[in-house]
């Protein structure tokens, strides 16, 4: 694999057996997911909004490095699922049952500080949401709230380079971020997430508000980030899932509108030879 030219402290803390192993080759079937080399393990997860069950009994392991796509018809709870992984679901008044293990520890355990957890998991939203501040301050935000002092320039340049935005903005770092185009704003939001050195990046339909050219740029970016990061991307666009992901999880929903996981496996396998009839129907466009 390509090793980043820049020193990556986080790499040194990774379990040795997962370092340098390309995610493409460590795909595990859902039923044999008990290994500890997974970044995330979702176990019997139910997500609720008030009385409404939005997700039912989700079991999903996410291994180190690479991209996992979450696909499914609209309203099946894809976004809710990723929001459960950094405890943003509860910000909107939602409730969760079951366990989500992040690096082997249950993030819903009573002693876990959700704020601290979120600073280790990056998130990119549907609509680009840069703060109405300068480009520099946007990327610096996560560092500042975590109490980093001194010169932040190195980290900011590195983050913007990784987000493939540096060349476009290096001369106007003090300009307001809202002046950027939609695609640039979304890459800025990715840079903002990268700056805090997250161990996992969640992307909730990151291209749904962008034009095709900007979408292409983001997809290329996701591919290049996949070599260093674990990424989970929600998308309603199956071609996009096929283009960017190594693994795919397919969700659909019951008649009571509760989402559940149908199938999870290598993207190639899901798209060419799905083991479940419902997946096949969805992928071939017979449903959804």
């Amino acid at each position: 694999m390509v090793i980043s030219q820049l020193p990556n402290l986080k790499e040194m803390f990774k379990p040795s057996h997962s370092r340098g192993v390309n995610a493409r080759h460590v795909v595990t079937e859902p039923e044999q997911s008990a290994g500890t080399d997974n970044v995330i393990e979702v176990e019997h997860l139910n997500a609720l909004y008030g009385d409404h069950l939005a997700l039912r009994d989700i079991n999903l392991p996410i291994s180190h490095k690479g991209v996992t796509a979450v696909i499914g018809p609209s309203g099946c709870g894809k976004s809710t699922l990723v929001r459960c992984l950094n405890r943003m679901h509860e910000m909107a008044g939602g409730r969760v049952e079951g366990r989500v293990l992040f690096e082997g520890e249950d993030i819903y355990h009573r002693g876990v500080d959700a704020v601290e957890l979120r600073s280790r998991i990056g998130m990119v939203f549907q609509k680009p949401n840069p703060f109405p501040k300068s480009i520099f301050e946007n990327v610096a935000f996560g560092l500042r709230i975590n109490g980093r002092r001194g010169s932040l320039m190195d980290t900011i340049e590195r983050s913007l380079r990784r987000a493939a935005l540096w060349d476009e903005v290096k001369d106007r770092l003090n300009k307001n971020a809202l002046a950027l185009s939609g695609g640039q704003q979304q890459r800025l939001c990715i840079a903002r997430a990268l700056a805090v050195e997250p161990e996992l990046i969640l992307m909730d339909e990151p291209c749904s508000a962008l034009d095709p050219m900007a979408t292409l740029a983001i997809e290329e970016l996701i591919r290049s980030l996949a070599q260093e990061y674990t990424i989970i991307i929600v998308t309603h666009n199956m071609q996009q899932a096929a283009r960017v992901s190594d693994e795919t999880a397919f969700l659909t929903m019951d008649t009571d509108r509760a989402g559940y996981l149908v199938e999870h496996g290598q993207t190639r396998q899901i798209f060419t030879n799905p083991s479940d009839k419902r997946t096949e129907d969805y992928i071939t466009g017979r449903f959804g």
Binding site: V115, M123, F125, K127, N129, P130, F131, P132, F141, I145
Partner: peptide, 19 residues
């Protein structure tokens, strides 16, 4: 969505409000 963005970066309520 600005509040969400800040929360997702690990800001607590105070930081979201004030920053």
């Amino acid at each position: 969505n600005l509040r969400e963005g800040a929360h997702a970066l690990g800001a607590n309520r105070f930081q979201v409000s004030v920053r």
